[in-house]
């Protein structure tokens, strides 16, 4: 599977067929999830209507972690097997993860103001998510800091693997340090403690976010491949100019 997908042309073909249904599913699931979260789910007995922020915040936090896991696994694959698409996948996933982390931080802050009475607290989980955001930024800055793009990609891979230490810290920070942020209520030993009427919209939103991530990841990977192709064509063009007058049209970018 991994080696079959290593051929960029085959990847473009496959992803081209997968992408439209995937995008459609994303829209449908997110629409259902948002409807359930904003209109059907009951207001919380303590938090009132503000609990609806949770349906945006929690899946964003899941995806922030998941996207980093994708970056890290893709980086490991790139370092070990020199898989040509793995580096592209890692680089495509990083800005998405940073965006999810940003959404998570902002929505958490908007929720925290009415609930905790503060926009921000230096609580263990919030701080570690903020560190995750900086890890994403550092990764993206490092990847783009070299004139030789492949050197940037490999340096980024090592950094992504170093940053993995932060993932368990974020996941378990609320259990280890009993600070402001509430403990996990969905993925915990002994089943979720959240009420089913809120759990289902939350899970559907989570699925919607996951689909959104996959759609955008494929779009970004395809764009990166097309850009690489366009760059190669541009580099090859002057040589053709110098040889023969009837110029063949440059190959159309892969679809």
């Amino acid at each position: 599977m991994l080696t079959r997908l290593a051929n960029p042309a085959r990847f473009m073909r496959l992803s081209g067929t997968v992408l439209p249904p995937l995008a459609l599913a994303t829209v449908v699931v997110l629409a259902i999830g948002l409807y359930l979260a904003l209109f059907v789910a009951p207001p919380d007995y303590q938090q009132g209507e503000s609990v609806r922020i949770m349906f945006v915040h929690v899946p964003a936090a899941w995806m922030a972690l998941f996207a980093y896991l994708v970056v890290a696994v893709a980086s490991a694959v790139a370092l070990v097997w020199r898989h040509p698409l793995a580096e592209i996948a890692a680089q495509a996933a990083a800005p998405l993860g940073a965006a999810f982390t940003f959404v998570c931080l902002v929505s958490g802050s908007l929720w925290g103001k009415p609930m905790w009475g503060t926009w921000w607290a230096w609580d263990a989980r919030m701080t570690s998510v903020l560190v995750l955001f900086f890890l994403y930024l550092g990764y993206m800055a490092l990847v783009n800091a070299f004139d030789d793009m492949s050197r940037g990609a490999r340096a980024g891979s090592v950094l992504a693997l170093v940053g993995v230490v932060n993932l368990p810290i974020i996941k378990f920070s609320v259990d280890w340090w009993n600070t402001l942020h509430q403990a996990d209520s969905v993925f915990r030993m002994g089943g979720p403690t959240i009420d089913p009427s809120m759990l289902w919209p939350l899970l559907i939103m989570g699925l919607g976010y996951l689909l959104l991530f996959k759609t955008l990841l494929l779009v970004r990977m395809r764009t990166a491949l097309n850009e690489a192709k366009a760059r190669a064509l541009r580099l090859a063009a002057p040589q053709r100019l110098s040889t023969a007058p009837p110029l063949p049209e440059p190959e159309p970018v892969l679809r």
């Binding site: 490092l142 800091a145 070299f146 050197r151 940037g152 340096a155 090592v158």
Partner: peptide, 9 residues
């Protein structure tokens, strides 16, 4: 080590 050879290391 990661930033060796980078712009503005």
């Amino acid at each position: 080590a990661l930033t060796l050879g980078a712009r503005r290391p």
